[in-house]
Design a protein around this nucleic acid. Structure first.
Length: 499
RNA sequence: GCUCCCGUAGUCUAGUCCGGUCAAGGAUAGGGGCCUUUCGAGCCCCCGACGUGGGUUCAAAUCCCGCCGGGAGCACCA
């Protein structure tokens, strides 16, 4: 059974146990609309350009694809869109692994991985055909000239050449007869097409840059539109999910298929942009900032990369629910990360055990403290069965500076410990729980630093019990926020998820 | 400028294709209360929207037209 192809496996299963195929989506939020024209196996693809790690914005494309593939029991292809790119958008060799890592963390079920840079023979072959059929021509205009003509809607002299002439010039391009920028292959649409964006777009151009995977083996590279016209067909893609910036690319693929005689075509579905109030996302810009040291690495919280979210203790389920809540509409979305945090809080609150952390500590002496050695706050207030933790106490304690300044000379409660009139020399007033402000504190402590979402570091003291935490644990520092424990050595380092 | 797309509360979203069951549902944020030895969680209540003008219709968030607002494409990037 396992030797059969995915499609054959599916057919077989459909025959013997059709109910197993009606897989329920794993996410609890509202159902997304059905995909149009589903018949046979749904094949979808996600095509990132490897210029940097995936960030939260890419999660939308990945998760939407993954959602539909799971829903229909289909096939998901991860296709590295690693054509040569441009000067402004260089390929980043490490990005391949970073992207795979991000996809895996998201829990996307990928069935096949392909690289555009491996498929050049197929692109060349289809280009031969397209040019021979008069669907494309070699143009020697300078890019400025080309652009000006497009704007004016006039054809250049090269447009009138015969297919035979173009085949020959295309050969010349491949054989190195042209330098960078000296010739391109253009799709023959209509120079007077009402949409100026659609007038004889470029399909291939020459680049002598070195490619991280295939080096200098190729110098004529396809643009996204052509490579996808070929591969959506060859790979049997049935449904293409794209950002709405790529709507015109649909038409270009269709025009190419018209020339190539491709009958079976995928459905195109577009979704609007996703903006976050608190971030400015750009894979290339992030890569640049990391390279130039403005960010600490691919998981610096300011990158909003999937790696950084993981490091902060954002859970994939929360991200999935959050992202899928936007649906698949063409409407642009501008949302606050607070909504993500709200989802994440629901996921981690039950698992996050409680600890005290005192940021920017102020030392106080408690006068009149009875002979108490330790106190036993609950590990988690909602789960008494998890037991209590032990905190050593003494007349010397540390409290957060903000609370010290806010409540000085007032009676407050050191939570789970005792009440004092707060001051440098604090006066013990009893141990009974009262309706007064309650703040966290430590006596016996371990140094701790918390990396905040903006990259700043908050230093302070944490209760010694935190030393027994494991790296990766998500805990709640009471009255401070939820953090993921990132390192435990002499002290503790954690990343803040959110309050 | 040309081509195309979108417009439900502070924010996100359901409903719009096939008009009535929508005096518009949910989430988040905000306000109030309960509970709680956290400013966490939970529970209850409240606030709050169909961009606008016209038309069609017994009936329009849903259909048609104009306007306004926002966005995208017009790269030898993806």
């Amino acid at each position: 059974m396992n030797r059969l192809s995915l499609g054959a496996q599916r057919e077989e299963l459909e025959r013997i146990a059709p109910e197993l195929l009606a897989r329920k989506p794993e996410t609890k939020p509202h159902e997304l609309p059905e995909l149009p024209n589903v018949r046979g196996t749904v094949v979808m693809r996600f095509a990132p350009y490897p210029s940097g790690p995936l960030h939260i914005g890419h999660a939308r494309a990945v998760l939407l694809n993954d959602y539909n593939v799971r829903r229909y029991g289909g096939k998901f292809i991860l296709a590295y869109d690693d054509t040569i790119g441009s000067e402004e958008k260089p390929l980043m060799p490490e990005a391949y692994d970073l992207i795979a890592e991000g996809m895996e963390w998201l829990g996307a079920e990928v069935h096949e991985v392909i690289y555009k840079s491996d498929r050049m023979p197929a692109f060349y072959q289809q280009a031969d055909l397209l040019i021979a059929r008069g669907g494309a021509y070699v143009c020697e205009c300078a890019s400025q000239e080309l652009r000006a003509n497009r704007e004016k809607g006039v054809a250049c002299a090269h447009r009138g050449r015969t297919p035979d002439e173009n085949v020959e010039l295309w050969r010349r391009m491949l054989d190195g007869g042209y330098g960078e920028g000296e010739a391109v292959v253009r799709l023959k649409t209509d120079m007077r097409h009402p949409n100026p964006a659609f007038r004889d777009r470029v399909l291939f151009r020459i680049s002598e840059r070195e490619h991280p995977r295939v080096g200098t083996r190729y110098r004529v590279w396809p643009l996204l539109e052509f490579s996808w016209a070929v591969d959506d067909h060859l790979l049997g893609v049935t449904h293409v999910l794209r950002g709405k910036d790529l709507v015109m690319e649909d038409e270009m693929e269709k025009a190419i298929w018209d020339y190539l005689g491709v009958q079976r075509r995928p459905e195109f579905i577009h979704y609007g942009f996703l903006f976050f109030k608190e971030m400015d996302l750009s894979k290339s810009k992030l890569a640049k900032d990391i390279r130039e040291g403005r960010l600490s690495g691919v998981d610096d919280p300011r990158t909003w990369s999937l790696q950084s979210l993981r490091r902060r203790g954002i859970r994939r389920e929360a991200l999935r629910t959050f992202i899928l809540s936007f649906g698949m509409s063409l409407t642009d979305v501008e949302v606050s990360a607070e909504n993500l945090y709200a989802e994440n809080r629901k996921v981690i609150d039950p698992v996050a055990n409680r600890f005290f952390f005192v940021p920017d500590p102020v030392r106080i002496a408690i006068e009149g403290l009875p002979d108490i050695r330790e106190v036993h706050p609950p590990v988690h207030p909602d789960f008494p069965e998890r037991g209590t933790r032990t905190l050593a106490v003494s007349p010397t304690a540390y409290v957060p500076r903000v609370d010290y300044l806010a409540f000085r000379n007032e009676e407050i409660r050191l939570k789970d410990f005792c009440n004092v009139v707060l001051d440098e020399r604090a006066r013990f007033t009893g141990r009974g729980v009262k309706d007064i402000p309650k703040i966290q504190w430590v006596c016996e402590a371990v140094p701790m630093r918390v990396v905040m979402p903006d990259g700043a570091v908050t230093e302070g003291l944490a209760e010694a019990n935190l030393r027994a935490a494991r790296i990766g644990d998500v805990v709640q520092l009471e009255r401070f926020g939820f953090v993921r424990i990132d390192a435990i050595d002499g002290g503790i380092t954690a990343y803040l998820a959110h309050r």
